[in-house]
Design a binder for these strands. Structure first.
Lengths: 177, 177
DNA sequence: CATTACTTTCAGTTCTTCCTGAAACTCTCA
DNA sequence: TGAGAGTTTCAGGAAGAACTGAAAGTAATG
């Protein structure tokens, strides 16, 4: 631990801790729980798959917390568990390809946030369509407009998430403005 | 309250309440606080600007709560206050154009969520760039890749939010897949 | 089948965020 | 300038989300 002249491993360790901590704060601002974001950051920058115990030790969190958030990350498709032959423990590794990460997040947010919203609006529009009055017509039109916008956004997300080409963003950039 | 044959106003009222309640739940799932989303839903579907007291009565919330969330919505650019001549009270009306709503949200999320993330990553990358070791190089490259992705996404958001044309989404849809 | 290694669950606790209500403040008008 | 109308602030309380730690569950091994 004190053999190298500039202790590069120590510096790297510091930089990584910084990344993990900050990514947690960011995730928090994004409405993702802090610990989940930190575990993700940890695994993204891990040189090799990590076990639950390693994650616990590294972040100083409880077993229950580590387990739950690891499962959650798996369900988002952001990490996967790997098994080593001759080892009963489960290890986790992150999807490191940024575009695939983005697709996974898009897919999940669509499923969890956009689709339910669309369902709700369809319901409301159906209810108000049958009421006859100028006020009801205005209400119905306003909600229907929002609904139709969301439906379009939803299919854009669907296509983006399905897409293999990670060049969509640069391409979009070229065509805008 | 009981003069019309099918009580259309009552039905409309029910549909609107449903919309407000559900939009609150959705907003919640989107990481926006429930009350703020409900006030927004209320104003979007209001036939005329509403005062703080009307919002309070309608949603059965306290003055402090109403005031704070109205200010927050104003700061997001999703509603604006209007003054009626001969009336000292402040009234609020929502931006009803869906595309403008979307731009406002994009602009704010970019400012509050994406920009800070980019700052953090730039910082981390700068720190790790100078460390010399294979592990550090791998770390640095991984973070730099994420950073560069975010920077691209950021400028796409910037251009979309600035754009006047609400036809970007249908257009994108046409070109995908 | 008993032991050991590991994973999952969950009741209770802690931490955070949100909301209330009342007091303080600001502005306008006479 | 003071009375009334309206708005803002904020300490304390309520609600909700996340975390802990230990016990229960599961599965491989000898």
């Amino acid at each position: 631990m004190s053999d190298a002249s500039v202790d590069p491993a120590g510096e790297l360790h510091t930089a990584r801790d910084e990344f993990v901590a900050q990514w947690g704060a960011i995730g928090n601002a994004w409405g993702i729980n802090r610990t989940m974001a930190q575990i993700h950051a940890l695994l993204i920058t891990a040189p090799a798959p990590m076990s639950t115990d390693e994650v616990m030790d590294d972040l100083k969190i409880s077993r229950g917390n580590a387990n739950g958030n690891l499962r959650e990350l798996v369900s988002w498709g952001l990490i996967r568990s790997v098994l080593r032959r001759g080892d009963r423990k489960e290890y986790f590794e992150a999807e490191k390809d940024v575009w695939k990460m983005f697709c996974a997040i898009t897919r999940e947010r669509r499923r969890r946030e956009v689709s339910p919203a669309i369902d709700v609006l369809r319901n409301v529009v159906a209810r108000s369509a049958s009421i006859e009055s100028p006020a009801a017509a205005a209400f119905n039109e306003q909600v229907a407009t929002i609904l139709s916008f969301l439906e379009t956004a939803d299919s854009v997300m669907e296509k983006v998430a399905r897409s293999e080409q990670n060049s969509i963003l640069p391409w979009a950039l070229k065509f805008l403005k």
